[in-house]
């Protein structure tokens, strides 16, 4: 009983952490100035946000003595870990090859060689 309660508390913490980073990712997409920097926020925060929530669900399954759900959730987590940066790369590469210039600070424009 106690173990069940502890595991449910762990689930709550993991899901809360996941939600926090989804929120941070959303704020990042809204506040950052251009496509490339927004992609940073969206990719990193979606990966950890989804990973943390999925891990929380696996722990929730384990608290009920159900481990097959946990394994399935881990498979999905690995898929997210692979697909999220791959999709970001596909988008960023398409943007770069179409000629989208990245945002730079006003004082950095023209001043430095790179």
């Amino acid at each position: 009983m106690l173990i069940e309660a502890i595991l449910q508390a762990v689930t709550a913490v993991l899901v809360a952490v996941g939600l926090f980073f989804f929120l941070v990712g959303t704020v990042g997409v809204l506040r950052l100035p251009d496509f490339y920097s927004r992609t940073h926020a969206a990719t990193k925060c979606d990966t950890l946000g989804a990973g943390s929530i999925l891990l929380g669900l696996a722990v929730l399954g384990a608290s009920r003595g159900d481990y097959t759900d946990g394994l399935k959730v881990l498979v999905i987590a690995v898929l997210v870990l692979l697909s999220s940066p791959t999709a970001a790369h596909a988008l960023a590469r398409a943007a770069f090859r179409t000629g989208l210039e990245p945002y730079t600070l006003p004082e950095a424009r023209g001043g430095e060689d790179r």
Binding site: F20, V24, G28, P33, K44, C45, L48, P102
Partner: peptide, 22 residues
Amino acid sequence: IVAANIHVAETVLDPRLPIDPI
């Protein structure tokens, strides 16, 4: 990955939005 998320959180929750992209 955890460090990357904390870095994004620090950056986008900072009112000054301290970035210098290159």
